[in-house]
Design a protein around this nucleic acid. Sequence first.
DNA 1: AATGGAGGCAACCGCCCGCCC
DNA 2: GGGGCGGGCGGTTGCCTCCAT
Length: 333
Amino acid sequence: MGHNCCSKQKVKRGLWSPEEDEKLLNHINTYGHGSWSSVPQLAGLERCGKSCRLRWINYLRPDLKRGSFSEIEERTIVEVHRILGNKWAQIAKHLPGRTDNEVKNFWNSCIKKKLIAQGFDPNTHNLLPSSKANPSNIINNNNNNNNIHACNMFSSSSVFSVNSSHVSADTSIDILEAPYLTLPSTSSPNANHESSTISTYEFQNPNIVWSTTPVQEQINPIFLPESMGINSVPTISTSHSYPISELENIVNESFQPITKSTNPEDIQLQSQQEEAREVVEDEEANGLDGAQTNMDVSFGSSNFDMDFMESTVLPCGMYNYQLSPMDQLAWNC
DNA sequence: AATGGAGGCAACCGCCCGCCC
DNA sequence: GGGGCGGGCGGTTGCCTCCAT
């Protein structure tokens, strides 16, 4: 197929020379990119507009971060990928200075292999069948370090719940394990979560089970992990759908950042999260994410705001993220 | 020192979507 | 409404480098 912008003119392909980089850089610094299709001609390049755009985004942009990925970045990628799948552009939005291409390459060359080595399916983030019987994979179920670990660690159904009455400053919650929110069946979406009312948040990986079937029909009995410091009581929950605006309030109330990092990188991530929230608020104010939006429709066909979802759960660095010995072992490999 | 394989990364390809006429 | 066009994105390819033999 190809693009017209490429077929209309004689275009060079392959690696960019330093001279081409300089031309493109000078042009964009002076005039901005405007219409990418016009950039090659204006900048004196024998490239197609798309190639220029890609070169700028992936290599020449001044705000790009160079070097290897940090552990925080790695974990962020894994956790957001668990939620969104191969949405590299969305994932990259949570990694300042990283591009979708970079994230994608890093995933394919490194993270994917790590997950497989750990016995996880990199697509679903579920335990691979051959690993489910491995006792080492469920060690975290019985530890007592207040961490809530991957649903994979204690549930093959990819569904688990977080009881909001137990969310406290002493509890680190890896809520990124929780891509799919089913909100509490309380009388009001604005219920006071500090009360004795037990509100259950349920999460489900859209990569594994996702349909337009009403949520309550999908939910399996859920076992709260002992690591949360509560009894493991089987719970069958009902669910409700809430407007995004209310959803945000509920989640924000329940999952306030526990620690404020002094790490500049974390501060930058926190700042980005705030920006994402503002975007959501703006969109709501503009009616783009209407109050009618609810959670019973699929991500792909709804107005559900992924940025909001992500900003609610990310970055992981904000949530007193503690690596379990198991995690450390795995991630230091 | 030469060679072949593996891994990493930059870039391209093809498709989709939104905008405009 | 539909076609053209440009931008964006995910998948794939191919080149380059590194390392083991």
